[in-house]
Design a protein around this nucleic acid. Structure first.
Lengths: 334, 334
DNA sequence: CTGAAAGCGCTAACAC
DNA sequence: GTGTTAGCGCTTTCAG
């Protein structure tokens, strides 16, 4: 049996309120008693029961995080950032991996509701009205990270996808490439799919390279799909000398395909990625990519949620963080 | 304000006990009342408060997972397995990433204690007496995954590291290699370091290749360290034609180093890894490796913990799961 | 089959 | 400063 406040009180020969006081406002208790209590706490290894506390405070000091795919390195970074922020702010963190499964996501929300999490960070996924309504119905405050909502006014933190994609493609163009393809996210299940495509289009158009706009194929989040998409892309457009991949994992899939076809990267084809995962500098060749401040995104999302929780609102609704081009070995001048 | 059982009772015009009954034993309530209650529950989106429940049941139906490094793909698999098992068994999961920091780990245990997790899965790390004592002091049952303890009798699930390492090295020998090196884990902060080294030694000795035993360098968990260790290894032993890496991430670091030195893999040097991460089949060249049943390890650990929690003991204390050699492209006959 | 009431461990008035 | 006590929301006897 775990010791309760009563056991501590008995051992220290004080009332339970005194024990409660030394746990919460030590200075309001005279030193002699305080010491006795603290000693009893030590000896019994007493830890206040958070159920009892939760009942009173009506807060769990726990945040929930919903991520689509824990096997994607991107989210490991978001988790680290968020976890560090949680430590700083005094929250525990509950991470749930939805595997991009609607039912699972919905049931995790129920779970969060039951466990009384104070707020939720919803990562990277499209906020379908169904999700939104459920969250609102449960009265759980939430923010979006690496995502945003056009339909609803939900606080969010992300990079400027359009601008970042533009920068990537512009870099390829400045390298002298004229035949540029793209491996993008399917637009129907991805928030960043459309803006990154827009960035691709804008860079091309601005340089009079519109003929490339159609040279894009789509994949859904994973390496294998990107490999397949690369196959389609190079079958249709063998003239390509550069490709913009909207995720580092796509860049790896593309390079892997090219390798199997004996096409050299960056010798014959330049490939640029997006995200700057930890793996990206380990890959061969090391990936040129658009770095997202992944850790910071997670950190900031937790702070923003905290802001929402404590003040009831956020200073800036939709926040953009800086991206940065990282030039490594997968791209070369044409 | 979230609705309470009282609100539901009022709306359904029954007592709170009746509401409690339809939530927990619906059949003990006549249909008419039951329907009224269920309707009220729907309309109010009532969700029982788990604090109040926890106070009564003295259980949180939550498990804790302690992992050393969430940016290591290995743990993503463990998490997935464990999370699926948790869903099946009716637990929520609380994941904490220690970043291999002692203080942090200890404070997470306090956190788990306070949050009243029912049990903990401790992943991959060495169970220092300090950790053991704290866990025991908190009276939180726990099991080890991808780890074991020689000092204490703690339930564990892992692969047979010695045997698996032996298989890896034997494979290299059977390929005709006579000059074989190793990049291992530092023995002082790794559980699987020693047994994998033992496997290396046994395979070598058995084939009369003892002269290789000294040809080993150590790294601590990450790519960059393995890159450095590979540098040391090949500086000291340039004659090597094969290297056994005790982690896929080490194999990647080694290959990356070799690539920078313009040494071909597998053309001039064969490299075998260990783990079979998702990335390993994406790497160039695709990694030959010893596959661990990562997902199953996580799944099984949760089941084992559940067994410990419900029956007070486990059928088999230290459980070994099957590993498997996966031959891909990073190895070749000598 | 159903309601009243006790109590889980804790905090926060409220007296002293 | 410190103790007493009334709940927080729920489950579970115990009567009826």
């Amino acid at each position: 049996m775990k010791p309760t406040i009563r056991d501590v009180a008995r051992m220290a020969e004080v009332s339970i309120s005194t024990v409660s006081r030394v746990m919460n406002a030590p200075n309001s208790v005279v030193e002699s008693k305080r010491n006795r209590v603290m000693e009893a706490v030590e000896r019994l290894r007493y830890q206040p029961n958070s159920f009892a506390r939760g009942l009173i405070y009506k807060k769990s000091f726990t945040l929930g995080l919903l991520i689509p795919d824990i096997e994607n390195l991107y989210f490991a970074g978001v988790i680290r950032g968020m976890q560090d922020a949680c430590i700083k702010l005094g929250y525990s963190l509950m991470i749930c991996n939805t595997d991009r499964d609607k039912e699972r996501l919905l049931s995790y929300i129920d779970n969060f509701h039951e466990k009384q999490v104070d707020g939720i960070v919803f990562a990277s996924d499209v906020l379908y009205p169904e999700y939104h309504d459920k969250l609102v119905g449960c009265r759980i405050p939430f923010v979006l990270v690496s995502s945003h909502s056009d339909e609803f006014d939900i606080p969010s933190v992300e990079v400027d996808d359009e601008e970042a994609a533009y920068d990537a493609v512009k870099f390829l163009i400045d390298l002298g490439h004229k035949d540029i393809g793209m491996i993008g996210f399917n637009h129907d299940n991805s928030v960043s799919g459309p803006p990154r495509y827009e960035g691709f289009v804008r860079a091309l158009t601005e340089s009079g390279l519109q003929q490339n706009i159609m040279k894009s194929k789509y994949a859904s989040h994973r390496f294998e799909h990107a490999y397949q998409a690369a196959h389609e892309l190079f079958t249709d457009y063998p003239e390509l000398t550069a490709v913009f991949c909207v995720a580092d994992e796509f860049a790896m899939g593309t390079i892997s395909y090219l390798k199997d076809r004996n096409i050299l990267v960056p010798g014959q084809v330049s490939v640029i990625g997006f995200d700057n995962l930890r793996m990206s500098s380990m890959f061969i060749p090391k990936l040129t990519t658009i770095a997202q401040p992944i850790y910071e995104l997670g950190y900031r999302a937790a702070e923003k949620l905290h802001e929402l929780l404590t003040t009831g609102e956020v200073q800036v609704l939709n926040e953009k963080m800086e991206h940065k081009l990282i030039v490594r070995e997968s791209t070369r001048e044409k």
